[in-house]
Every structure is written in structure tokens, then in C-alpha cells.
Design a protein around this nucleic acid. Sequence first.
DNA 1: GGCCGAAATGGACGCTTGTCCATTTGTGAC
DNA 2: GTCACAAATGGACAAGCGTCCATTTCGGCC
Lengths: 213, 213
Amino acid sequence: MPNDLPPRQDNRQILIDATLASIAQIGLIRTSVTEIIARAGLSRGMIHLHFESKESLLAAAAEHSYDRYYNRLEDHLNHSKTAPQFRIEALVLCDLSEDGLTEDIARTNHEFQSATRAFPLLAPFSDTRDARLRTYFERAFEEITRELEDPDPALAARDLTTGLVAMMEGLWVDFLLHPQDFDRQKAARIVFRMLAGALPGHFGLLGARHRAA
Amino acid sequence: MPNDLPPRQDNRQILIDATLASIAQIGLIRTSVTEIIARAGLSRGMIHLHFESKESLLAAAAEHSYDRYYNRLEDHLNHSKTAPQFRIEALVLCDLSEDGLTEDIARTNHEFQSATRAFPLLAPFSDTRDARLRTYFERAFEEITRELEDPDPALAARDLTTGLVAMMEGLWVDFLLHPQDFDRQKAARIVFRMLAGALPGHFGLLGARHRAA
DNA sequence: GGCCGAAATGGACGCTTGTCCATTTGTGAC
DNA sequence: GTCACAAATGGACAAGCGTCCATTTCGGCC
């Protein structure tokens, strides 16, 4: 009856968005099928029309979240300068930006991490900072450590990657638990303080440095 | 009272232990009252004899977990040397030790963080690395930065605390998501690498240093 | 041995859960 | 206009949920 056409595949995305909103606001435990379809404004049967089960809807929501994270990240990466320290800087700043880190994003990310045990289908998308992100960092760090007189540049690059990824993960948790106290600038300064300590030729307190030696 | 009495308080603890075991193994979402009493080997009514509700049992389990973390931590702290860098070292090593960081502990910690939204009673015990731990670190860092020619020693101490706590939190998540790949020694080395970069006079790659500079 | 009150039991309650399916609605082809 | 089929609906279902409470068990005291 309404002549504004109800597009077919759109309802799939509406369900995914409603699921993410519900998880962010009331948590995965309270996110029932009833809750999701109420938020989506659709009928109960829609979920099993577009998805095999509730779990597969959750997996699609996690995948959407995962893809959005990396799309944003790789977009920042492609617009950064090519020198390794600037690529690292771009990834860090994107990860802490107002677009990249919101309460909803931090919360859904954390919930999906927990839920992997109960919902195995989520596994491929529950670890936001997986090998894909680690590889970006590790390659960039290797380019830097190879030039230095480091006895084992590959090891140094791996350690720096693990430490940096852990710190970023921890800052997300910090933001999640104390969103009102969180300061993005301060968080970035803390990360660069650590990088400046490890690679003083390439990083300062404010971010990446042009080679100054 | 005889010390062998069929102890009122014992079944309370049995319920708490069963709850923690269930959360660690199958996740909070699948941890139902039926599941808990089956693991405890008790009857349904026991939960409401010892606790107001399921949520208050969860809160008691979170509190137990929280207390155990700090008991261990403060025990390590009391047995460490008093110089600030050694107190920091003791806290870090305890946090990453085989006793302090197990899969069960990491998982329950993570689940309680998520569950705060759905179960407000958990809030006081869901943030393991809260102001209490931060204060230990911040005081120690301040003792160090005050002696240095740092323009703002208090700020430096706060930044170092936030960065260190975030990194430890992130390492726990790393351990949780990839327990088979996790190496405690490597994790400690990564933390000390960062501390050595920031405070080279007090830390080396292997841990705290006696004042050498 | 008999009694009392606390400890413990487990069946039953009303609700909500995820899933299913018999219908209805809407669109494009002919 | 009519047909065919996909999209969408929402009521019904059994299973499982957290909670409650009438009943039974049991140790300590007279």
C-alpha cells in the first residue's frame, strides 16, 4: 500500500543495525529476538527469512562491525604518508579517533569477544586486532628496526607490535569502563610516549617524526 | 560451635566456585541457575537461601574474583624490595604469572566487564584494574619521576600508569583470545621494553634496575 | 527419645526464549 | 487482469528461564 518501495535486501541490514544497537545499549545477554525485531520494526519471522538462526544474525552483525573497522583503518592508511612511522601513526590515530572509537563500537567489540565461547560462529570476527592489523604494524616496525643497529630487528618488530596492539586494546577497555574520564588526546600522547621511548628517532610525544636522527 | 558443622557458609562458597567455573567454561550467557546447581551438586533452592537472586550470586562471584586478584597482588607487593621500580616490577610479574593469569581468570574477568550493563550489582567488582591498582603504580612512578628533570612529574606518572595498565589489560585480552600462542616471558619483556624506553635509569629489558645512572 | 529451628530439597509457577509455519501482502511478467 | 512466486507477517510451540514455597532432613539441646 505505501508507494515508497520497501527494498528487499534492506531489511537484512536493518536487522543487523538493530542487533548492534541493542548489544551496545543493553548488552548481548538481554538482546533477544523479540528485542531485535522491536528495534527493527519488523516481524518475528524476518530473522529466519534472512538468517539461519539468531547466532548467524549475530555473526553477520560481528562481521559488519569487523569490516567497518578495517575499512576505516585502511582508508586512513591509504591517505597517510608512506614512511613507516607515519603509517603507524595513521593506524593509531584512526583507532582512537571520534569516528573509530565510540561507546557503541567499544561495547559491541567487547561483547563479541566474550560471546565467542557461546557462539562459535562469531570467532572469525570477534578479534578486531587480529593478524590483519598486526601485519600492518609489524611490516612498518620492521622497516624501521632493520635500519637500526638492533641485534634482532624482526624480534624487536614483533615485540613492538604486540605491545602496541595490547596498549590500544587496553585503552579501548579503559574507554569502555570510564567513558566520561577518557581523553583521546591524552591516550594518543601515552601511545606516542611509549613509541618515542622505544624508537626516539622516529617518534616524539606528538606522533611520528621526519627522520631527524 | 563445632568446627565440623555442616557449614552454612560452605555451600555459599561452593555456589560461588561453581558459578565462576561455569562462566569460565561455557560463558555467562549459558550460565543458568540450573547449570550452576548442577555443578555445585546442590538443589535449586540453595541459591535463594544464600543469595537474594541470581544477580547477587554473580556479584558475590565477581567480588570473590576481585578480592583474590588483589590479595595475590598485595602479597607480592609486600614481599618485594621497597624501591619504586621493584614495586612496579612485582605488580607486573604477578599480573602475568602462572598463578595470577590463567584462562579461567582472564575469561571471568572479561565476562564480568561485559556483564556490568545487564547486571549493575557487578559494577564495583568488574573493573579489576581500577583506582586501587592505579594508585599503587602512580605513587611508585611519582617517586621516580620526581627525581628526574621531568617538567611535570605528576603528569608523567599519570601517563605512565595509564599506559602500563592499558598494556596489561590488553595482554590479558591477547592471552584470552590466543592462549596457545601466549608467552609469559615474552609478555613481561614487552612491558619492560616499554618501561625501559620511558625510564631507562630504572628499568631494563629484564625488569627493574638498581640505580645505576 | 523427643523437640525445635535452621538447612536443604525439588516440584511447580508464570514468563520469556528461539524457532517454526500457515497465512497474507506485494511485485513483476505475461 | 491474472498468475506465480518471493517477501513479510505474527500467532503458536516446546523448552528453558529465574523464582518461589510447601515439605523433608538433620544436628544440638532438654
